[in-house]
Amino acid sequence: MVKITFITSDNETITLEGKSGSVMALAVDNGIKGIDGDCGGVCSCATCHVHVAPEDMSKTGSASQIEADMLELDDNVNEFSRLCCQLEISDSLDGIVLKVAN
């Protein structure tokens, strides 16, 4: 199991465990506040915006061009921004911390 920690905008910390699928789906299934995933994970709605903890950026990598274009016009964007529908759960993500952007 891969452990992923979310910190919501009201500073609640929730650690979830997942095996596969996207980080967005894991968050939505567990009702993480601020992650809506309206479009089901095809990068069209930007309702799954997170800030990756700086030390975890090497694990997640940075956004693809299309993802970056989506993020560019979102509120609260910064250099650690990702759309978590584009993060596939795998062992390499174990232990990462994500701050929900909205």
Partner: peptide, 16 residues
């Protein structure tokens, strides 16, 4: 099953 699909069929931004 288009995987990356940043369409604007529902509009975009504030007024989506």
């Amino acid at each position: 099953d288009r995987k990356i699909n940043p369409h604007v069929g529902f509009g975009f931004s504030h007024h989506n």
